[in-house]
């Protein structure tokens, strides 16, 4: 049944609008690779480029030279909460990963990031489009010295996005689907 369901062709997106709504909790930027993140009360997103003050707008990130879109990266606070509890039991990584440490730009609540690949959504006045799912890296594990963090973030490491419409965002802004 499950397999059959998964293989069923997806209905036209217009017939099947997503109905979730979430919230922006934190905005963080790092001016260069390996620099500790800084929290912002307000972030300026530049369409097609990145967040002002962030390494991926400045071209100084660890992955700046690598293909893929990384104008802004997001992660779910629910993942951080699960990690803090050591869930799921396999691989069972139990770690405190603070929003300032995960090195994604935006921390969200109530947003199904893994389902937004290829879809557009709004964060406050800004429109983002989901690129690839973020893949965890040993770099972060080594940087923070948290053993098992790489495995702990597999399949829930967040979403890399492009910025279709820029603007200013603040913690508390609603996040809603567009298609």
């Amino acid at each position: 049944m499950g397999v059959e369901h998964a293989l069923r062709p997806r209905r036209e997106e217009s017939e099947n609008p997503m109905t979730w709504s979430g919230e922006l909790l934190h905005i963080h930027v790092a001016p260069a690779a390996s620099m500790e993140m800084e929290e912002l009360a307000e972030g300026t997103l530049v369409a097609g480029r990145g967040i002002e003050g962030d390494r991926y707008l400045l071209g100084t990130g660890s992955y700046s030279a690598k293909p893929d879109i990384r104008e802004v990266t997001l992660i779910e606070v629910e993942v951080l909460e699960a990690l803090a509890m050591g869930e799921p039991k396999v691989p069972g990584t139990k770690a405190t990963l603070e929003p300032i440490d995960h090195r994604r730009n935006l921390t969200t609540r109530g947003v199904p990031l893994n389902h937004l690949v290829g879809r557009r959504f709004k964060v406050g006045e800004v429109v983002l489009k989901g690129g690839r799912m973020n893949f965890p890296c040993k770099y972060l594990e080594e940087l923070l010295g948290i053993e098992g963090l790489y495995e702990g973030l597999l399949n829930r490491s967040g979403l890399n996005c492009s910025i279709e419409v820029g603007g200013t965002i603040r913690p508390g802004d609603p996040i809603v689907p567009l298609d």
Binding site: A32, A33, M35, S62, E142
Partner: peptide, 9 residues
């Protein structure tokens, strides 16, 4: 070499 976090202390 492994990376290291750079902090403003």
């Amino acid at each position: 070499m492994s990376p290291r976090l750079i902090m403003k202390l």
